[in-house]
Simulated assay, not measured.
Amino acid sequence: MRIGVLGSGGMADALGGRWVGAGHEVLIGGRSAMRSAELAARIGASAGTPADAVAFGEAVLVAVPAAVAADVLGHAPGQVVVDCTNSVVPGRFVLDEPRAAARLAARSGAHVVKAFNLCHVDVWRGPLVFEGRPLGVPLCGDSEDALAVVRELVRSIGCVPVDGGPLERAELLEATTAFAIGLWVGGADVRSLFPTVP
């Protein structure tokens, strides 16, 4: 699959590199041409502008700060867009912009799927199997066709897609992330909050 990546930071690196390793074609389109080229060379992708990434991708990963996501994506009617952003206020661990994914969809005209936002960037760089089970990736979206594309991206790196419901539930996924980050920073083992029912 052809994947356009908006951004050249940690998530662009970790997920873009995973997808290259899984045999996908990846184009990095960050706001800095130099950083995009450096990242692309490091992970075996190609580089261009954000507009190039949107035009290139059968799916587009938005891996820029949530506050600028809509501006960087621009108008992308009908495009499959994977939103891995979190609008978490540093230090307070609350959402700066509730319903950010829904607004991204409304402004761009894209079929937005919220995914890959629940785990820290370093999780995506390591083994994606925990206690003998592959990592589950919650997905929230309204387009079944877009969800099918993102499920394929999830499975291609050895993870399991988990149905999280329509896009309106994406803010719950972001809020869960914000809450979990706050607990994790405070030293709690977040996994202990979700035991398997016997």
Rank of each mutant, 00 (worst) to 15 (best):
I3E: 00
I3N: 02
G7F: 04
G7W: 02
G9R: 10
W19H: 05
V20D: 04
G21C: 05
A22Y: 04
G23D: 07
V26W: 05
I28L: 09
I28S: 06
R31I: 11
S36W: 10
S36D: 11
L39W: 11
A47S: 15
G48C: 08
G48P: 05
T49C: 11
V54T: 10
V54S: 08
V60Q: 05
A70C: 07
V72F: 03
V72Y: 01
H75Y: 12
G78I: 11
G78P: 08
Q79R: 15
V80I: 13
V80A: 08
V81F: 08
V82H: 09
C84Q: 06
L95M: 09
A102T: 14
A102N: 10
R103I: 02
A106N: 01
A106Y: 05
H111F: 11
V113F: 03
L118F: 13
L118N: 03
R125A: 15
V129P: 04
R133P: 01
P134G: 01
G136H: 06
V137A: 07
V137N: 09
P138R: 09
L139M: 14
G141N: 07
S143F: 05
E144V: 06
A148Y: 02
V149P: 01
V150Y: 09
R151D: 15
L153F: 05
L153Y: 00
V154H: 07
I157H: 03
V160G: 00
V160P: 01
V162S: 09
D163G: 11
G164Y: 09
G164A: 12
R169K: 14
L173V: 07
T177S: 02
A178F: 07
F179E: 10
I181T: 07
I181Y: 03
I181E: 07
G186P: 00
G187Y: 13
S192N: 01
T196D: 10
